[in-house]
Nucleic acid binder design. Structure first.
Length: 322
DNA sequence: AAGATTTGACCAGC
DNA sequence: GCTGGTCAAATCTT
């Protein structure tokens, strides 16, 4: 296909290298100028007024490289966006894994002792709305957090949307949490109605790092056993029903959640019904992939250019209008 | 019309 | 009584 001709990961790496080289070159020039500026300190003040111009000149190459790379990235995002039509690409996976070396951090794995949901949950709609009888007793005693993950938020596009993990979720609540700046969102599996899938997750933006989400998973997906499970995406892995649940527990530590192949499994799943625009299951995973990719690159560029660890968006939001 | 999100209220556990 | 988790009516999106 035409997409394969681009070899985007390689192009991207090349561009990144070029940008880094350019920045480093500019940095060196800048240092040299500072040294020479100190040496010429006794000369007229007008010399120093040239420094900004020289700095601009020194960084000109870098900026040109940046512009080029931004353009490349933009095209690459488009490419990623189109990849939902393609078989799983090992290069992409490697690239994403590389970029995510500090991405998802699994910080705990509790007992998988999923609660026995004997109550009305899973049969929520058995509740007689019209009746004024009290709600059925809710029990959270046995609800244990299966695992907690730290997931990066996209820096471009809609950063308010929690990261896609390959499953479709329906938001059923949001709550202000004491001592937290950001509210916690509650999601349950979209297939809860149909298949009684008990999976739930909580998503909360970290106070100290708004670009990270803490995602707590509860329950296990049973819907992936069904025919509607997000497992039909053709991938060149050992199994075409690849999903997080098919991985050994330990592998979740080596395969970050946000780039798990399950992300790709739902590609092309289509909007279906509902408010797709702002739901966690709305945009395709590849859109997020592009977000993450650009975010990681931006971060890398920041870190390579200075010690500034700011997470401010670096790239023009060229894809905002998509 | 169907399904999703929003949001105030309800409920359970501590 | 406080807090977090869930419900469900209202509203929105497609």
């Amino acid at each position: 296909m035409a997409n394969q001709q681009l070899q985007p990961p390689h192009m991207l790496c090349l561009s990144i290298d070029e940008v880094m080289k350019a920045f480093n070159g500019a940095k060196e020039k800048l240092l040299m100028m500072m040294v020479s500026s100190q040496q010429q300190d006794h000369q007229s003040i007008t010399t120093s007024s040239h420094v900004p111009m020289l700095m601009m000149s020194a960084t000109h190459d870098a900026m040109q490289q940046y512009a080029t790379t931004t353009s490349t990235l933009s095209r690459y995002e488009d490419h990623l966006f189109q990849m939902q039509q393609l078989p799983f690409n090992a290069d992409i996976q490697q690239l994403r894994y590389y970029n995510n070396s500090s991405g998802t951090l699994k910080i705990g794995e509790g007992d998988v002792d999923r609660s026995v949901r004997s109550k009305s949950e899973g049969n929520v709609h058995g509740i007689n709305k019209a009746s004024s009888s009290p709600r059925p007793k809710k029990s959270r005693k046995n609800e244990s957090v299966k695992e907690t993950m730290m997931v990066p938020a996209p820096l471009v596009g809609n950063t308010e949307i929690p990261p896609d993990d390959g499953f479709t979720w329906r938001k059923y609540g949001q709550k202000e949490i004491l001592g937290s700046k950001y509210p916690r969102s509650y999601y349950r599996c979209t297939h809860q109605k149909l298949y009684g899938c008990p999976a739930k997750k909580q998503v909360q933006r970290l106070d100290h790092n708004p670009n990270m989400f803490e995602v707590k998973l509860r329950g296990e997906h049973t819907c992936h056993m069904s025919s509607t499970a997000p497992s039909s995406f053709p991938i060149t892995q050992s199994s075409n029903t690849f999903s997080p649940h098919h991985l050994p527990a330990s592998s979740t530590t080596s395969l970050p959640g946000w780039l798990s192949s399950a992300n790709l499994n739902t590609l092309g799943g289509g909007g279906g019904a509902g408010a797709g625009g702002s739901s966690s299951s709305g945009p395709s995973a590849s859109k997020y992939d592009a977000d993450y990719l650009v975010a990681d690159l931006a971060d890398a560029m920041f870190n390579s250019g200075s010690s500034n660890n700011s997470m401010e968006p670096f790239f023009p939001s060229s894809k905002e209008d998509k």
